[in-house]
């Protein structure tokens, strides 16, 4: 991948991130922050490559720590986000119109 292509990707991705978030209601700020926290867990891929190509013991130790932390970022971010979003329900989906249906 040439540098200029990488810069194009960078620019387009920056706009994408902005547009995706721009209209988000306040009620989803916390889950979204958690969700984006999960997404940068993709650093796991870079950490795996670094450890995979490590040769000296020092490189291996640092790479190992990197992979461990990155896996923690990805898995923890997922677990917390999923738990939060699990709880978001509308009154219609709670069924029978028994609760909160009258407004």
């Amino acid at each position: 991948m040439t540098g200029i292509i990488a810069l194009y990707i960078f620019m387009l991705a920056a706009f994408t991130g902005y547009e995706v978030i721009a209209k988000v209601p306040v009620i989803l700020h916390t889950p979204l922050m958690s969700g984006s926290n999960f997404v940068h867990g993709i650093v796991l891929v870079g950490a795996m490559v670094a450890l995979g190509s490590a040769t000296s013991p020092l490189e291996k130790v640092i790479g190992f720590i990197g992979v461990l932390l990155a896996a923690g970022n990805a898995v923890g971010g997922y677990a917390v986000t999923e738990r939060m979003l699990e709880m978001f329900k509308s009154s219609r989906s709670q069924g029978a119109g028994k609760r909160g249906g009258r407004h």
């Binding site: 990707i9 991705a13 940068h40």
Partner: peptide, 16 residues
């Protein structure tokens, strides 16, 4: 993949 995911989070996170 890292450039895209990282940048999306970077710009979305800045806005947030």
């Amino acid at each position: 993949a890292m450039i895209i995911a990282g940048t999306v989070v970077g710009s979305a996170g800045t806005l947030l």
